Computed example of a mutant assay.
Amino acid sequence: MAIGWLGAVKAVPWGDVIAAAPTVVQGANALWDRVAGKRRREDAPPPVPPEGGVDARTAALEHAVVELQKEAQAASQLIRSLAEQNAQLVREIGALRLRIRVLAVAGAGGLVVAGVALATVLSR
């Protein structure tokens, strides 16, 4: 089983994974910064609305909804990027499994041919 995992790790296109890693990290950092910034703002006392507090509250809630939508969009982009990388890894592992089967059959055939050749040489 360990040999299969080792082969799978070797077949992964690490160049592509490494090339995409900075984008994923930047997305994760941006998302983290937004979430951390929200937490800092939540720790501060809420602003006291002036007269006509209902309108101020409505505006604050609308602003909060817009910020949440931006965070959800950033999170979905990050998830999509990770999903694409996962799909690429799965494709490569599938190709690796096929390659291993072909090599196993070719190796077995090579052993048979080598055995027949050796038997022929020794029988003379």
Rank of each mutant, 00 (worst) to 15 (best):
P22L: 08
A2I: 14
G15P: 00
D33Y: 02
Q88N: 11
G37T: 04
I93W: 07
P50M: 11
A95D: 11
A83V: 11
R39Y: 05
L68Q: 15
A95H: 08
G37D: 09
E92V: 10
L68G: 13
R57Y: 11
M1I: 08
N86G: 12
G52A: 09
A75Q: 05
A87E: 05
E51W: 03
R91M: 09
D33L: 13
K10N: 09
A19H: 04
V121F: 15
P13V: 00
D33I: 01
A30Y: 08
R34T: 07
V105P: 02
P47I: 03
A104H: 08
G7W: 08
R99S: 15
V24P: 02
R80I: 02
A75P: 01
R97F: 09
W5L: 13
I100P: 00
V48K: 12
G94C: 08
P49W: 09
G7N: 12
A104M: 12
A64Y: 04
T23H: 02
L89V: 15
A87P: 00
G110V: 13
L89M: 13
V35S: 08
A21C: 07
G109E: 07
Q85E: 01
R97I: 15
A72Y: 05
A2V: 10
D43N: 12
R97W: 06
V12G: 00
R80T: 14
A64Q: 09
V9W: 13
P50K: 04
A30C: 00
A83D: 06
A87N: 03
E62D: 11
W14H: 03
P49S: 10
V66F: 05
E42L: 15
G107C: 14
V102N: 06
E42M: 11
V48F: 05
A11K: 01
V90W: 00
S81G: 14
A74W: 01
P45V: 10
Q26Y: 04
R101S: 10
A114K: 03
G94N: 13
V24R: 05
E51F: 05
S81L: 04
L122F: 10
P50R: 05
P46M: 03
A19M: 03
Q26G: 04
V65K: 13
I3F: 09
V112M: 11
V116G: 04
V65L: 14
D33R: 11
Q85F: 00
I79R: 09
I100H: 05
A72G: 04
G37A: 15
E92P: 00
Q69T: 11
L61H: 03
A108G: 15
S81V: 00
L98S: 14
G110N: 04
L122S: 08
K10M: 11
A56K: 03
V90Y: 01
H63E: 15
S123P: 00
A83T: 13
V102M: 10
G109D: 03
R57K: 09
S81R: 10
P45H: 01
L61T: 06
A60C: 05
L82A: 15
N86T: 12
L118E: 08
V105D: 07
T120E: 10
P22Y: 05
V24Y: 02
L68F: 09
A36M: 13
A11S: 12
A75H: 07
A44R: 10
L6H: 09
A117L: 15
V48P: 01
A72Q: 12
E84V: 02
P49C: 12
E92W: 11
E42G: 01
